[in-house]
Simulated scan of single mutants.
Amino acid sequence: MFQFGFNMFPEIPRPFNMIYQCHSVAMLPGNERQDVERGGKIIMPPSALEQLTRLNINYPMLFKLTNKKTNRVTHCGVLEFVADEGKVYLPLWMMQNMVLEEGDLVRIESVSLPVGTFSKFQPLSPDFLDITNPKAVLENCLRSFACLTTGDVIAVKYNQKIYELCVLETKPGNAISIIECDMNVEFAPPVGYKEPEKVKKEDEEMAVDPADLMPEPTGICALQRHGKSIRWQETEGFRDQ
């Protein structure tokens, strides 16, 4: 006789859907949190973790953020669950993308995103080209991100300077997970970038031998020289007759 346990059929994950009051990371009590500012993850309250656990949400935890006033949408991961109850803290660049002010309401929903295979970025200033290895700098920055959304403008900090890059394209979808993925990265020319004008070199005058301008003989030709004719044949060259 078979005995069935309660865990034979795993519990199906249920969606997480909450509305929080949002604030920038600068408003988070305690020490300055640059690790949040330079990434793509948010800080949520402890009660959110309890609810996510009860809902059996799959890892990694990814979320869709929506500003109902402007219909702006982005996606993110979560860094910690230490926010005050009823509040979430977002990086400044994320609040700017969402057109959110301090204390505005934001809807947060759990989502499952495809693993990214391709992304294309456009720097918003030609200054980004001053970086010796921009691709390596970007890849290092993206380690603090959980996902990317087409149309977002992310902030990359390097050598005490902040560079803004627009996410032009992501594959295989408009929002992708970039956690432990093998993703190709490309850059579009920066906004305002102009190709340097090529220096035109003056054509150097070449000495021309007048003999080079004479047409080469073809077939058989005859010339008179001191009563003799000089005949040229293709196989035998010149010979006097």
Rank of each mutant, 00 (worst) to 15 (best):
F118R: 08
G219E: 08
F238W: 13
S24T: 11
T132L: 13
A146I: 03
F121Y: 12
D152G: 00
M27G: 05
L142I: 03
G77S: 13
A211I: 15
Y163R: 13
E139F: 11
S125E: 02
P46F: 03
S112F: 11
K87T: 14
Y59V: 09
V115W: 01
R143Q: 09
P60Q: 12
T70F: 12
I162L: 09
P215R: 13
G227E: 02
C22D: 02
R239M: 03
P190W: 03
Y89N: 02
P45K: 02
Q122W: 02
Y20F: 15
V208C: 07
S24M: 02
C22F: 03
M44F: 02
K120W: 03
L138F: 01
N71M: 14
D104S: 05
L124K: 04
F6V: 06
N97E: 09
E204C: 07
V78M: 09
Q224G: 05
C22T: 12
L142R: 01
P210Q: 00
F63I: 09
G5Q: 04
P29I: 00
F118H: 07
L92W: 02
F121Q: 00
Q51R: 09
T74C: 00
P190F: 08
A222W: 07
E102L: 07
Q3S: 11
D212Y: 08
M18G: 04
L52H: 10
E80V: 01
K198L: 15
I220R: 15
K135W: 13
R33W: 05
M44E: 04
R54V: 11
P126S: 06
